[in-house]
């Protein structure tokens, strides 16, 4: 005895005969085929997908979260102060920062020596951008050159992140101090 299911289809004689419904289905797929084929034959694109590496999407939403950019100060230094907020908030543990002390610039004694993002782990949530207190990390809508052959080699370093699309308009500026900050008494 076959079990009756709640969503058992109710088919009339026409559907039950099967062959006519099959023909109807073939007409549907066939018409799609012919329509698309007509476009191809008249030198138009009959597909919704893109030839990925050759053809890049141009219609990304402006809100799309793509590859990261590290902004630069006016003097070309990286805006990041290596506070590790992005690395801490990152839910995928994809950011690693090695800090270094640089007392030559009294306003920015701490700077990143290395800034690594693992794109094999990044989930593009954008938390790093929101967490950044310095407007030092941004995400632009484009996602170029992401594929890789080795998941251990999908790290993007500071050089790449700063220079693949240089941005020199960080929203936060520090005034140059009037007096030297590192005076040594006596």
């Amino acid at each position: 005895m076959r079990k009756d299911y709640w969503n058992k289809p109710e088919m009339g004689l026409w559907e039950r005969l099967y062959i006519f419904e099959v023909i109807r289905g073939l007409c549907i797929t066939g018409s799609v085929f012919l329509g698309n084929m007509w476009k191809w034959l008249t030198f138009r694109k009959g597909a919704l997908t893109a030839y990925y590496p050759e053809e890049l999407r141009s219609d990304y939403s402006p809100n799309n979260r793509g590859r990261h950019v590290l902004t630069q100060r006016d003097n070309g230094q990286v805006q990041c102060v290596s506070c590790n907020m992005c690395a801490t908030v990152c839910p995928a543990y994809a950011i690693e920062i090695l800090s270094t002390a640089n007392f030559a610039d009294p306003c920015h004694p701490k700077a990143p020596e290395r800034f690594e993002i693992d794109y094999s782990r990044c989930i593009f949530c954008g938390f790093c951008v929101e967490a950044c207190p310095e407007d030092a990390i941004r995400m632009v809508k484009e996602v170029p050159d992401f594929p890789g052959f080795d998941r251990d080699r999908m790290w993007a370093g500071m050089d790449l992140l700063m220079n693949w699309r240089p941005m020199r308009d960080p929203a936060k500026h520090y005034p140059t101090p009037q007096a030297p900050l590192r005076e040594v008494p006596e």
């Binding site: 799609v32 085929f33 698309n36 084929m37 009959g46 597909a47 030839y51």
Partner: peptide, 13 residues
């Protein structure tokens, strides 16, 4: 190719 065209795709290329 035919399945690709039927499904609005490009197909193996």
């Amino acid at each position: 190719k035919q399945s690709a065209v039927m499904a609005d795709r490009i197909g193996a290329n």
